[in-house]
Each structure stands twice: as C-alpha cells, then as structure tokens.
Computed example of a mutant assay.
Amino acid sequence: MSASDIYENAPLGKLINYGDRAPKPLARQDRLMNALPARAAGIPAGFLDQTASNRTSRATRILHAADHITPFLERGRPIGANARERALQRPARQNGIPGELVEASLNRYLVPALGSRSIHHVTDTDIANITNKIVAGGHPQAANTAFWYMRAFSTGVANRRNGSSRFPREELENPAPIVKRKRVVNDAELAAIWTGCEPEPGDIGYSFGSIVKLLMLTGQRRTEVAAMRWSELNLEAGTWELSGDRTKNEEPTLIPLSTLAVSVPQSVPKTNDTFVFPARGNGKSHFSGYAKGKKALDGKVNIDGVALENWTLHDLRRTLATNLGRRQVLPHVIEHILNYKAASLTDIGEIYNLYTYVKEKREVLQMWSNHIEWMIKQAAEMDALAA
C-alpha cells in the first residue's frame, strides 16, 4: 500500500510513524477538526488555514450577500434553463441593463432578509418568504422577477464559493403566474398622461415627465431613455444613436426624432456633461427613480377628475406599436423602431437584409408625433370649453 493510500484511508486519530520514527497524528485529521466550526458557519474549507488578519475580512465577504452583488454582475452569470437567466449571462454594462435592475432587486429583497447569514445557507423557505411578501403587497410580477434574480445570484455565488447552496431546485415554481400584459393606453389617456408630464411652475432642472414624453414618442425602453447621453444625440439632424452596449438585445439602433421629440431634450437644462437625465445628487449616474416618479405622476394624471389606474411605463411602448399597426405600418418597420428581434424575418432575411429603415422610421414616428400633438390640442380645447 502506498504512502498516499495510508494517508487518505487511515482512521481519524490513527498515529503513523514518520521518517524520524516518532508517532504523529495525521495532518488530515487536524484539518478536518479545524474545519468543523467553519462548516457550521458556512465558511468554505481552507478558510482557517489563512492568517488571522485575513480571516475577519474574508468572513465578512462570505457572510454578507451585499458584498457579492457587484462581483456577480461584473463577471457574468451562470447559465440557466430559464430565458431570463440566460439574459443574465451578460456582465453588467455601462447603462446598467440588466445589472442595475438585478442589483436593486437583490439589495431590496434578499440582502435585508438574510442579514448576516451566509449566502451558502439560502433556502427555499427564505426565497418563498421573500416572494410571498411581494405578492401579498400586490406586485406578483415583481415577485417573479425577484425570484429569477435571486435564483441566478444564489447559484452563481454560493456554488462558486465552494459552498453548496440549497437553492434553487429545478422544480421550484414561480411565485405567481406569468401574465403577459396587453394594456394599450387609449388616446384620451395618452393626452392626460402628456398633460401630467408638463413641469410645474418653479420646477428646476428636468422632470420625470420629460422621460415619459420620450417613452411615448419613441417607443424605446425606459432605461434606454433614462440613460440618454448628450453624445448620442444630434438634435440638428433629429437623431438619437444607441450603441449595442446600451440596448437590451445588444444591437445598435438609430432612432429618428420627430420635431416634438427633439423639443424634449432641447428643453432640458444641461447640468451634466454625460447624461441628459442625471441622477439627483449623483452626476456619475443617470435617473433611476422610476417608482417615485411614477407615483408622483399618477397623482397628476386624471380624466374628468378620475385618476388613471393600471398603466405602466412599458405600456407606452406597446401602445406605440399597436397604434402603428392600426395605421397599416409594416411589421418589420415597427420592429426596427422598437429595436426588437424581427419575428417576421426568416433566417435568410436576417442575414442578408441589412437595410436599417431609417427613412421609413422617421416618417412613421413623425406621423405618430403629429397624432399626439393633435390629441394634446383637442384635450386643451375640451378643457377650455369645460372651464
């Protein structure tokens, strides 16, 4: 029997004569015994072999989920069967899609729930308790999103740290049924939203309403608009150019701006050299206070004194696409406006048809802008008659 076989197979506590013929306990036993307290605390094997000065700082990193969120976003995510988990493969990008949303969700829900417990000890029950509270608060789809993010995070961090995460199991179900929204905002509601977006007297800087107006006029995604850079805009030519690292599908796109759309950034004071809509008190980042902004806007939007309910910012994107379809705009033009993977194109079409439809997009978006201007005028005339 080889020396290595003796070393690995000898019972714990066995004494072996080494070269100097002095009986000594196996080093393997020492390591295992020293590791027992660490295992109970969720600390990986080998942790206690480090110097005392390093142990405290590393214990903090291991036991606190918050310390692992940024590294998790920067290095990419584990591959999962779920489409949303596959979307998390990309590392966090400059505009925070999807890293910013993942980070916000984890910090809001997972970190407070775990406290100082090790991320290795995340259980199904922990996740169920978190998501059930979100569902009970009236946000079932937010619960699903938080569930997907926590599953990706737990798998990617706990398993990577030589730990054995008890979550997720493949058979775990979403906390709420997945519902595809079909809400299309009608003309009267669009006019009311636009009116609510107008700045109040005495407002300084830009308003959240400016972002909502651009969502309505361009049909782009909310973070793409909120993270708009001055360098992306050519207001004289009426264009807004997004690089691939600024879009959800990582495809570059050029959005022709209608006359009304051009007027929105023109009305915004340039208080930041990078962002058109910088974060409040943080010039290095862009606006991200969607929930607070939407709540304030909801308080100003009403039709005949009745508050407008059950609408989201993303509904404006669907509303634009639906209205263009009603006006017989060709599907592939709508898809290019939305910068959405063209379901109407065959594989051959995707490979060989590299035309970007800028001219067609400009005509269509100007038509949509003219319609919105007409609605605003009609609403103002109706209000004047009512007064």
Rank of each mutant, 00 (worst) to 15 (best):
F287C: 05
L242M: 10
P252S: 08
H286C: 11
E251K: 15
R246V: 01
E232C: 08
Q266G: 09
E241R: 08
A237V: 00
S267Q: 07
T259W: 14
P256L: 01
P252Y: 02
F275T: 11
I255L: 05
N234W: 04
W230Q: 00
S243F: 14
L260E: 13
N272R: 01
T259K: 11
V276A: 03
E236L: 14
P252H: 10
N234M: 03
F287Y: 09
E250P: 03
S258L: 09
V276G: 00
H286D: 13
S285K: 13
W230M: 06
G238Y: 05
A291T: 15
A237Y: 01
D273Y: 05
T253D: 11
K294E: 03
D298F: 06
N302W: 15
S285E: 12
G244H: 07
E250M: 13
G289D: 14
W230R: 07
W240M: 09
H286L: 09
I255C: 04
L297R: 10
A291V: 08
L257S: 00
K294V: 05
P278C: 09
S258Y: 04
S243W: 12
G281C: 01
S258K: 11
E232W: 03
E232M: 02
E250R: 14
L254R: 14
A279G: 08
K300C: 04
E236M: 07
N302K: 14
V268W: 00
I255M: 06
L242T: 01
N249M: 12
D273K: 08
G293T: 00
G281W: 00
V276S: 09
D298H: 09
G238M: 11
T259C: 13
W240R: 14
S231R: 07
I255F: 08
Q266W: 15
K284A: 11
S267I: 03
S288A: 14
G238V: 04
F287P: 04
K270Y: 06
G244V: 04
A291N: 12
K294L: 07
V301A: 00
V301L: 00
Y290F: 15
D245W: 01
T271S: 11
T274Y: 09
Q266S: 03
N282P: 13
P252W: 07
F275C: 08
N249T: 08
V276R: 01
A296M: 15
T253M: 12
P256I: 01
T253A: 12
P265N: 03
A237F: 04
V276L: 02
S231N: 07
K284F: 11
D298Y: 06
S258W: 05
K295P: 13
V301F: 03
K270I: 10
